[in-house]
Design a protein around this nucleic acid. Structure first.
Lengths: 160, 160
DNA sequence: GCAAAAATCACCCGAAAGTATGAAGTCAAA
DNA sequence: TTTGACTTCATACTTTCGGGTGATTTTTGC
């Protein structure tokens, strides 16, 4: 199928889906055995199933599709001062051993986003953002996000 | 729901989905009327419906999700005078009606200080710092200190 | 193929930040 | 003189941040 190559092999998602599907089918079997729904309103019943699994499919797709963009260190304008270079200092990034994700988090931090907003933007959970930022603080040897931003800006790690 | 805002209002897709859904339900009604499938293998039947609508849901999601805009790293080099960039914009300060104290707090914030540290530095209580920062956020129309710092920097309100 | 690094997520807990509200003193301008 | 902006502080409350820990999965380099 067309979308197969767009899907990642996230087993947890698939497992969750499988379990929910079996759970629903199990309930159906129960209902069938007890003649509660089946002889009463089959069309309504089928409709519910359809809607339910449509939602499930949508959920599945949205969680399995890999977000296309990974890195977006966007620099609309690079202001170049005649004396001081405003380019991003790759050496400093390596010196502090910052990962790609940590750098993304740092940049979004400097844009004033909360952890929650960063999580939404990067399609990851709030906890993960916390982990990244926590590691970032250790690596940069700072205590707060404002300090991290300040240091990152000073070292030209952040897109100005 | 969470994914709603990720969806575009593509009416053609929705229409197609609606039509297919009704078509399937129509077929079901036919089968029901003719007692072909219903009494035979309901579980298999339901399973098919589930799979069918799951696929439909996946298809729907994949076609409704807004294509992520690929952001290119366009480096537009803008040469500027070193004097202009570092000058504090007094007009902007007045435009937002920032007081002297609020400005001090903002500057210390941008240096990465905590409210506690700002309080010590300015010889005022923590509560007062909170009041100043709170008023500052209202005036700058921001929600967080990081946002305030970002905006302040962008408007050249903060000493670089 | 396997070990290391990176990325993901969860839970708990305390600290810091931020909101809301009220109040009181200073000081300049109307 | 009184009005209004500024500064100061407090209490109570909610939200967000950050530390610590542990775990799984994915990616990557050898």
């Amino acid at each position: 199928m067309k979308f197969v190559n767009q899907l990642s092999t996230n087993r947890k998602e698939i497992l969750t889906y499988g379990i929910s599907m079996f759970a629903v089918l199990f309930v159906l079997k129960y209902l069938e055995a007890n003649f509660i729904v089946i002889n009463y309103r089959l069309d309504f019943f089928i409709g519910s199933i359809a809607i339910l699994f449509t939602v499930l499919g949508i959920w599945l797709a949205l969680h399995l599709v890999k977000p296309k963009i990974e890195t977006r260190i966007v620099e609309k304008e690079v202001y170049i001062d005649s004396s001081i270079g405003t380019e991003i200092n790759q050496d400093e990034i390596e010196r502090f051993g910052l990962s790609k994700r940590e750098l993304e988090v740092l940049n979004l931090m400097s844009a004033g986003l909360s952890n929650e907003e960063i999580a939404e933007k990067l399609f990851i959970s709030l906890n993960t953002v916390k982990t990244h930022s926590s590691n970032l603080f250790v690596k940069l040897d700072v205590k707060r996000r404002t300090q991290a931003v300040e240091k990152g800006r000073r070292l030209n790690i952040i897109a100005q």
